[in-house]
Each structure stands twice: as C-alpha cells, then as structure tokens.
Nucleic acid binder design. Structure first.
Length: 318
DNA sequence: CGGTTTTGACCAGCGC
DNA sequence: GCGCTGGTCAAAACCG
C-alpha cells in the first residue's frame, strides 16, 4: 500500500492560550500549510488587528464581539465540514458496498477468514505529536450466521515516525501485551494486546507494521469494548503519541470548553449497520481525504474566517 | 510489590 | 500424519 500520499487533514486548532505570541504563528502557519493553504503572514494579520495600547474599553468590547462572531462563524463552518464529511463517507460506504458484494466469498477457514472479515477501517496519521483520524466504525454486514459467531473486527492504519520502532497505538484504551510473533508474510513482528482496563473485556488488538510502508502501523481490533473508554480525554488533551481521538478544539480562552471530534464513535445517523465497509483500497481512502482537504482549502470563506479567528484569538489572549 | 513486557514453549488449524 | 503457521500461555525479567 502506498501510504506516502496520505494527506494530513489535521486542523489542530488546539491553541494554547498561554503560549507566547512569538511561538504561535509558525505553528499555525505550518498547520495551514499542511492543509494546502498558501502561506500567509500571520504577523501582518497580528499587526493589523493589534489594538493600540490606549484603546478605549468600547473598542475592546467591539473587538470582543467581533471575535465572538468569528468564533460562531467558524463553528458553523465546522458543522458544515462535518456534514460534508458524513456525506462523503456515506458515498464511500455505498461505493465499497457495491464493490464488496462482488467479493463476498466467505470461507469457513479460520485463518483465511481474517482477511475477508475486516469490516471497519480507520486511517490515522501523526504529525508532531498531534493525531487525526478519519474512520468508519460499522457493524458487520456479513451473513447473520457468521456475524453471531465472529467478533467485530476493525482495522486501523496509523502513520508513525520512521524512527519510531514501537508497536504502540494509543487509542484511549489500556492494553496489555501478551505476545509477539514474526509472521511469514511480514518481517516485522506482530504484537498481541488484550484490553486490560476491564478484566472481562474481550477485545484484542494486533499491531504490525505495514509490509509496503513500515512507517505505517496496522492495528487490528477484535471484539467490542464492554466498558467506557478509559483515557480518551487524557490522550486527547495531552496531545502525545498516537491517539484515535481527534484533536480537541478549545472554543474560547475564557471558557476553555473542549470539543472533541471523536470520529471513531461515529455510529450516528449516517452509519448503516448493514453496510459492508471493507475499504482496503488506498485509492479510495486517498480520494476521500483529498476531497475533504479540497472542500476545506478551496473555501475562501473558511480561509478568511480561520485567519480572522486565529488573529482575533491572538489578540484576545494578549 | 504489583502491573507490564518479553520470549520461548505450546496448541490448534490448515495444506500437502 | 507431518510440517508450517498464527495465536496464546506463562514464567522470568523489567519497571515505577
């Protein structure tokens, strides 16, 4: 699989309000650049919007209202983006379902069934400790007979640093490694994990590096957790390592509410539990991600609002 | 000291 | 039946 073309779609608006002004522009600029947006001079934005020191209170209040309105506008745009994402995903599900019908050749053999029983695919990437994910979390649509007998299996692709040799995929749950094996078709060892948060939790996880791209970890989950996620919030807010939970987005400095976009829990309205979700074709994943990125980066309103919000945020925090 | 990781041994399924 | 392979077990080592 050629994963080198995966696109970083992370917005990562988790701006630390206490960060000094000089640090932020580079980070924000790099994030926007990773979205394909042309570089813009944040300093200019900053300078143009920075209030005069002896500005009156009325001006500050007006500025506050403006920033609030921008935040509201951004929130609306975010909801639109989410809707677009769900629409795209439903289209993807429809596409994969049509393709999947042609290749449903269930086998009774245990080992061979593994490759044909992957009904949920997640794609993640890491970038400087921040994580993003697009995921589908569907129920199996295999024959009911098999569905009742086999645990739910999902597969997650995690892009890691090339120098990262660990087989750790931080997904908010607590795992205990119980085995490691070198398989025949992959020189990299496969690690076996059990969920250790709840003793009765039947979920198991296998983690192995991709044969084609060893910077990509392939985590295969078997079963469903029978307990709440233990540390998703902690993982999301810490921003360390690889996490399934998407980056958090604080809304305002005065009220640091976290909006966690946990796409892994998207068993919502657009999900069809009877939809087959075998999405092993990287091209399909790439097209999906590209469409998402394009829909964001080509929207001038979104760009303008984002720039205004960031600069306004800097202004507000100063 | 308790939990986790490591790692060799063991077991079961499958193909020949 | 035998060998190969993937998955699991369990004792020892490790770690905080």
């Amino acid at each position: 699989m050629d994963c080198s073309s995966w696109i970083n779609t992370s917005l990562d608006l988790n701006i630390n309000p206490h960060r000094v002004r000089q640090e932020l522009p580079k980070e924000v600029e790099s994030k926007l650049f990773s979205l394909g947006m042309p570089k813009f001079n944040v300093e200019e934005c900053w300078e143009s919007k920075r209030p005069i020191k002896d500005e009156s209170n009325s001006d500050l209040e007006e500025e506050l209202k403006r920033v609030t309105a921008e935040n509201k506008k951004l929130a609306e745009m975010l909801s639109v983006v989410c809707e677009n994402y769900n629409t795209l995903r439903s289209h993807l599900m429809e596409y994969t379902r049509k393709n999947g019908e042609k290749e449903t050749s269930p086998t009774s053999k245990k080992r061979k069934s593994e490759s044909s029983n992957n009904n949920s695919i997640c794609v993640m990437g890491t970038n400087n400790g921040n994580s993003e994910s697009s995921s589908t979390d569907e129920e199996s649509c295999k024959k009911p007979r098999e569905e009742t007998m086999k645990p739910k299996i999902s597969r997650v692709y995690v892009r890691t640093e090339a120098s990262d040799n660990t087989l750790i995929v931080k997904d908010g749950y607590q795992w205990r490694k119980y085995g490691q094996k070198v398989t025949r078709d992959n020189p990299c060892p496969r690690a076996y994990f059990k969920c250790s948060f709840a003793p009765s939790c039947p979920v198991k996880k296998k983690v192995q590096r991709s044969v084609d791209d060893q910077s990509v970890l392939v985590a295969t989950y078997e079963g469903e957790h029978n307990h709440p996620q233990a540390s998703s919030q902690m993982e999301a807010t810490s921003g360390s390592g690889r996490s399934v939970t998407l980056a958090s987005v604080p809304c305002a400095a005065a009220t640091p509410t976290l909006v966690t976009l946990d796409l892994t829990k998207s068993k919502g309205s657009n999900d069809s539990k009877s939809t087959k979700t075998k999405v092993d074709t990287p091209k399909v994943q790439q097209v999906l991600v590209e469409q998402m990125a394009t829909s964001l980066t080509t929207d001038p309103n979104f760009r303008a609002a984002l720039v205004a919000a960031i600069s306004g945020r800097l202004l507000h925090n100063n």
